[in-house]
Amino acid sequence: MLLLIPGPVQTRPEVKAAMAQDIAPWDRDFQKVYARIRERVVGVAGGTPGVHATLPIQGAGHFVTEAALRTFVAPGAKVLIPMNGAYAQRMARLAREAGRIVVELPLTDTRGATAADIMPALEADPSIGTVAMVYNETGSGIVNDAQGIGRALHAAGKRLVLDAVSAFGALPFPLDDHPECDVLVFTSGKCLEGMPGVGFAVARIDRAEACAGNAGSWSLDLSDVLAHAKRSGWGSIRFTPPVQTIAAFDVALDLYEAEGGQASRLARYRTNTGILYDGIVALGLKPYLERDQQGPVIVTIHQPSDPRFDLLAFVEALKHRGVLISNFYNTQAPTMRIGAIGAITPEDMRRAVAAIGAALEDVLPKAA
């Protein structure tokens, strides 16, 4: 089965094989693996050991995103969130339910946010100290200009919390170039092509220490994750982790480095996206985004206007042809979501386009 969703993604056989072992999380050999991963992640993030630290949290991206918001935005403080997608809406809910004051900045979900969108809102309300934003929106496929916004925030003396869940490892955001960024978060099962189950925050150590006491949650306190590591060692884990996922992630990092790292992975994903985008246009389908706004992670497509079309029936027809896509959408207009990331090749994507065309004929047969 070819898995074309924006995470958890298709994985390599070597990554799957690493899961087939029993592991004690406190075992010294495994602690070396865990400590090594934390150091390697700082490198992938373009950070500096001693300035930045990797702070893992068990669970899905929502867990580590909430932990970042709770830790780096004080209770009762304002946080600005550019609202141009489903995952921005989820970020706003996480912040609001954690007792933070969310200032929503409404934007269209068909283009990425820029500093020109963000800075007037901050100038209008100087009491806003932090911007929290999604780097890559997997509802529509847009990419927000995280680097440009980050530079503007730095100049203005504001802070950034970056949800890079579906971007990290492909889209660049070197932390050493962005001292305004308190933390970026991502998960194991996206662009680094590991198995799902653990989220990672890469944070400034000085800021994590300064924000101790903010979280209001022991489980979701990144300052406490840091304090535990400094007290018990970087191979130590506070609570029982998904150890097989961590072992597989170590292998996924090996494969990432062997491929050539961020630039090479982004190049492959962009090639996949281009083949998919051109292919669906050739099939007579309409992409949700204009080509100049299309990111490299997911292509979102308007559903056919034919009243006979049913998304779930199409997903099942495509599944019978060996390709699995999401059976839901996150846009206001009815769409289909097709991922371009994971351990998939341009040839896989060409096969997927052919399968999409055949599945459309299955659910929308032409009149004889």
Score class of each variant (00 low, 15 high):
Asp22Ile: 12
Asp22Trp: 10
Arg28Trp: 10
Lys32Val: 13
Tyr34Lys: 07
Val41Met: 15
Ala45Phe: 02
Gly50Trp: 09
Gly61Asn: 09
Phe63Ile: 11
Ala68Ser: 14
Asn84Arg: 05
Asn84Val: 06
Met91Arg: 00
Ala95Ser: 05
Val102Thr: 10
Val103Thr: 11
Gly112His: 10
Glu123Ala: 15
Glu123Met: 08
Ser127Lys: 11
Ala132Gln: 03
Ser140Cys: 03
Asp145Leu: 05
Gly148Asp: 01
Val165Arg: 01
Ser166Lys: 11
His178Pro: 06
Cys181Tyr: 05
Cys181Trp: 03
Gly194Trp: 07
Gly194Glu: 05
Met195His: 07
Glu209Lys: 15
Val225Gly: 04
Gly233His: 03
Trp234Tyr: 15
Ser236Met: 01
Gln244Asp: 13
Leu255Asp: 08
Arg268Tyr: 03
Tyr269Ala: 03
Tyr277Arg: 12
Leu285Glu: 06
Lys286Thr: 15
Ile301Val: 15
Pro304Lys: 02
Ser305Asp: 14
Leu312Asp: 13
Phe314Tyr: 10
Glu316Lys: 11
Val323Arg: 04
Val323His: 09
Leu324Pro: 00
Ile325Gly: 09
Ser326Pro: 00
Ser326Gln: 14
Ala333Glu: 14
Ala343Ser: 15
Pro346Val: 03
Met349Pro: 01
Ala355Val: 08
Ile356Leu: 03
Gly357Ala: 00
Leu360Met: 07
Glu361Phe: 00
